[in-house]
Simulated assay, not measured.
Amino acid sequence: MPADESISLAQMRAVFYSAVVCDALDALGYPHQSPRVPLSPLTTTGVLIGRCKTTLWADMAHPDPSPYELELQAVDTCQPDDVIIAAAGGTFRSGLWGELLSTAARRTGCVGAIVDGAVRDRAKMTQMGFPIWARGTSLYDSKDRNRVIDIDVPVEIDGVRFVPGDLVVADIDGVVVIPRAVEAEVVRHAWNKVHDENIVRQAIADGMTATAAFKKYGVL
């Protein structure tokens, strides 16, 4: 296993998945790092791994004097490997994210978006292969319905805290965030568990019972 510092995002993307990261967090005493609300991949398959770029959203019921201002600022200030986190309280008042924001975000190096609410332009985002996790879709524009009220601040989704720069992992099973304070330990633990699971899988395939494999390796 490479040292923690040498495990790149590319290496993580090749072998990590959300459940093994949750297991690593559990082992280190962080059992509530994955929102229980349904955040599902709508445009791609596979795993999304990157750094949190946070946006905080609110519902509106009046004309917006500065439409799209902060969401555009958030997109334009993304760094390579960022993942937009849209903390919007699960709103379906509008489609918060769409094709044009995806195009702009990709230009800055953003690798995906996780939206606690609805998105739109799903077919076009699927065609361009931009990874989106969300609760569902809404055809309505966000103008005068929702707006970003802050960026680059800690936000919460279903009581789980997402801090700018935290490592986030998402796949078909869900979304999990790794606090910076324990990132090195979690990455090392998850890396080792992937390796151990490969050994157990092969042992069972070769004829060992699940009970015997767990007794020998302590991995399930």
Rank of each mutant, 00 (worst) to 15 (best):
Trp97Ile: 10
Ile85Asp: 01
Leu96Ser: 10
Gly50Leu: 14
Gly89Tyr: 06
Thr77Trp: 02
Gln79Asp: 09
Asp81Asn: 13
Arg51Asp: 09
Arg51His: 12
Pro80Met: 00
Pro67Phe: 02
Leu48Pro: 06
Pro80Ser: 01
Gly89Thr: 04
Ser94Tyr: 03
Leu39Ile: 10
Pro41Gln: 15
Ile84Arg: 03
Gly50Thr: 11
Glu69Asp: 06
Ala87Asp: 01
Phe92Lys: 04
Gly90Ile: 03
Ile84Thr: 02
Pro38Leu: 14
Cys78Gly: 10
Thr54Phe: 02
Lys53Gly: 00
Leu42His: 14
Thr45Asn: 12
Gly98Glu: 08
Ala74Asn: 00
Asp82Arg: 01
Val37Gln: 08
Gly89His: 03
Leu100Lys: 14
Pro80Phe: 03
Asp64Gly: 11
Ala88Glu: 04
Gln79Cys: 09
Leu96Lys: 05
Cys52Val: 11
Gly98Leu: 03
Leu39Tyr: 07
Ser102His: 07
Glu99Asn: 14
Ser102Tyr: 08
Leu39Trp: 10
Leu39Gly: 10
Phe92Gly: 02
Asp64Ala: 09
Leu70His: 07
Pro63Met: 04
Asp82Val: 00
Gly46His: 06
Leu48Ile: 12
Gln73Phe: 11
Lys53Phe: 00
Pro41Arg: 14
Thr45Lys: 14
Ala86Asp: 15
Glu69Trp: 08
Tyr68Met: 10
Asp82Ser: 05
Pro80Ile: 01
Ala74Met: 03
His62Glu: 12
Ile84Pro: 02
Gln79Ile: 10
Leu96Thr: 08
Ile85Thr: 04
Ala86Ile: 13
Thr43Leu: 06
Ala61His: 15
Ser40Met: 14
His62Val: 13
Ser102Phe: 09
Val83Ile: 15
Pro38Lys: 11
Tyr68Asn: 15
Ala88Trp: 00
Ile84Cys: 07
Trp57Thr: 06
Asp64Val: 10
Ile85Glu: 01
Thr77His: 05
Pro63Asp: 07
Gln79Tyr: 01
Leu70Gln: 09
Glu69Thr: 01
Gly95Glu: 08
Phe92Met: 11
Leu48Ala: 06
Ile85Ser: 00
Trp57Cys: 01
Ile85Met: 04
Leu70Tyr: 07
Asp76Gly: 10
His62Met: 11
Leu42Met: 08
Cys52Trp: 03
Arg93Asn: 12
Ala58Asn: 12
Gly98Tyr: 05
Leu101Phe: 14
Leu56Lys: 09
Met60Cys: 08
Ile49Phe: 13
Cys52Ile: 04
Leu101Asp: 07
Ala61Phe: 14
Val37Thr: 15
Ala58Ile: 08
Tyr68Lys: 14
